[in-house]
């Protein structure tokens, strides 16, 4: 674990060196540190961004200074507070990990040729028939490794190794929202109309990003995800009545 500057207003907590060796464990550890830092609410820290092996911490140096210390020691001061916030008692660690691991979200995906425009490319590269590509993708268990690139873009870890397919040499200028793709060893969902180079194999009718909701995304880092293959008809009917429940609505539903 080390803490390194990323400019004068951000730093990176490097949790692990590698991701691929132990993705599940690394993700849990990154999320544990992310949550501990969220709870610690260290003065001057504005926001956090977890990603694969690290947590980026964005801060206001002026506010850090106002909370104590000297101007030349702003980074060291903050790094020390972060260090002490992420080394808590062991009982707390278990509770946090357990709580996070419970959420499993099912994403319906229509793998019809109209949406899966690169299924043939993936089939060719993996030397698997298209129906086998669909079957393997649809039965895998995934976790949200991080969200980024564009708001709500979900990077999912856990793609069956034999489905890995290199990105397209020339990215598409515009990819329709909901497109499910394979990029290298990862799979992911494009939430918004955007450019992109991943191989498109299907589409979900779910709305993954909605700026009018808090939080604005359907998925959060660490969530478990399963895909469910749906027909074109089901795609259309789901598309019409899908909404993201807000956290408040979810809490109401649990009561």
């Amino acid at each position: 674990m080390d803490i390194i500057p990323a400019g004068d207003s951000a730093l990176i907590v490097r949790v692990r060196e590698q991701y691929e060796n132990a993705p599940e464990e690394t993700l849990d550890e990154v999320l544990r540190i992310f949550q501990l830092l969220q709870r610690a609410a260290i003065p001057g820290v504005i926001e956090l961004a977890p990603a694969y092996t690290s947590v980026a911490v964005f801060f206001d140096p002026v506010a850090v200074l106002k909370s104590g210390g000297a101007a030349h020691g702003i980074f060291d001061e903050l790094a020390a507070k972060i260090q002490s916030a992420i080394t808590p008692a062991s009982g707390r660690r278990r509770r946090l990990t357990a709580k996070r691991a419970r959420r499993l979200i099912e994403i319906p995906v229509c793998y019809d040729a109209e949406f899966g425009v690169d299924l043939d490319r993936v089939a060719e590269h993996t030397k698997l028939p298209e129906h086998e590509v669909i079957h393997l993708h649809g039965t895998g268990e995934y976790r949200v490794a991080c969200i980024g690139f564009v708001p709500g873009f979900t990077f999912l870890a856990g793609l069956p190794k034999n489905l890995a397919t290199p990105r397209r040499d020339v990215p598409r200028k515009e990819i329709p929202p909901g497109s499910v793709g394979i990029g290298g060893a990862q799979t992911g969902i494009y939430p918004l109309r955007s450019p992109g180079g991943w191989n498109l194999i299907g589409r979900t009718p779910l709305k993954l990003f909605d700026a009018s909701k808090t939080p604005p995304t359907l998925l959060s880092p660490g969530d478990r995800v399963r895909f469910r293959a749906i027909s074109r008809d089901e795609f259309e009917s789901l598309k019409n009545d899908m909404v993201i429940p807000t956290e408040a609505e979810e809490a109401d539903a649990k009561r």
């Binding site: 990323a6 400019g7 990176i12 991701y19 961004a49 990603a51 694969y52 980026a56 980024g148």
Partner: peptide, 29 residues
């Protein structure tokens, strides 16, 4: 390299060797 958080002000260098100085609308990672 494994993706990490980036912020306005970061100068990143894609494989072509032409640096990009990120501004306010930059991606998060």
């Amino acid at each position: 390299l494994i993706s990490q958080g980036v912020a306005p002000g970061t100068i990143q260098v894609p494989p072509g060797g032409k640096p990009i100085l990120l501004l306010g609308d930059c991606q998060t990672i």
